[in-house]
């Protein structure tokens, strides 16, 4: 049973002089979608970096990550400028997928994200949104048990964001894996998350973790319970924001 959770136990983490996480504990269910929402600078990205093993906690434990293949959409696209659109996908897939399967994956994901006709272009020729879409392709195509998404839809327009939220739902339904989704967008969190962790401003504490068992098909932003949850979360986030911007 212990293995069905990813757990942070009394994790401390400082970056330079800033104590980002102080005695921070939470657990996320495996093969579920876990959303993290909170004001800027509250440590959301640090939590993902700890999960990816890119940072180590200064104290405390993180369990449930052993043997997990991680895929990651970073806040920035992080593409290799000297590789083409297809080459950037090939870069991460080469050692883990057979050549035939690779071609299929690349073509499939690039077509889904509207990038297939740009497969031989270099990143410098892409717009910001296209680069972000390519980074999303790369993370989705890479075989994983744990998918970390750091505000992945930030630079995209509203209809595309909604489309991608639905796409993540479909992907998860086809093969349920752990997804940790960091966002500023309450609606995205409500449409995706099985659990939504709302964080406070620094010093970071968990304001509330909302459990949402409602199947994804029945989630509608205009209907209960999402409308009242939306209002509740917005109120919480506004309170937290006031700590940063007392004048607003």
């Amino acid at each position: 049973m212990i293995d069905s959770l990813i757990e942070f136990e009394q994790v401390h983490k400082a970056l330079g002089q800033t104590r980002v996480l102080d005695d921070f504990s939470f657990s996320a269910g495996k093969n579920k979608i876990f959303c993290i929402i909170g004001p800027s600078g509250c440590g959301k990205t640090t939590i993902l970096q700890l999960m990816a093993g890119l940072e180590q906690p200064d104290a405390g434990h993180i369990t449930g990550l052993a043997g997990q293949r991680v895929s990651y959409v970073f806040q920035e696209p992080r593409l290799l400028p000297w590789k083409t659109v297809a080459g950037n996908l090939d870069f991460v897939l080469r050692d883990v997928v057979t050549p035939a399967e690779r071609q299929k994956l690349i073509k499939g994901y690039l077509s889904t994200m509207g990038l297939y006709e740009y497969r031989d272009s270099y990143p410098k020729a892409l717009s910001g949104g296209m680069k972000q879409r390519l980074a999303i392709c790369r993370a989705f195509a890479f075989p994983h048990d744990l998918l970390l998404l750091d505000e992945p839809f930030k630079s995209l327009d509203m209809p595309l964001r909604l489309g991608l939220v639905r796409y993540v739902v479909k992907m998860w339904q086809a093969a349920p894996r752990t997804i940790v989704f960091v966002t500023h967008d309450i609606m995205e969190a409500l449409l995706l998350g099985h659990q939504i962790m709302v964080l406070s401003a620094r010093p970071t504490e968990i304001r509330e973790t909302i459990e949402l068992d409602l199947p994804h098909e029945q989630r509608n932003v205009g209907e209960e319970p999402l409308t009242s949850l939306y209002a509740k979360m917005l109120a919480m986030l506004e309170t937290e924001n006031k700590k940063y911007y007392p004048g607003l």
């Binding site: 990816a52 895929s71 990651y72 870069f91 790369r138």
Partner: peptide
């Protein structure tokens, strides 16, 4: 560093 982090997440070998 961001590109190196990306490569380490996707488990790209040292030689590559």
């Amino acid at each position: 560093q961001q590109l190196l982090q990306m490569a380490s997440v996707f488990r790209i070998g040292k030689a590559r």
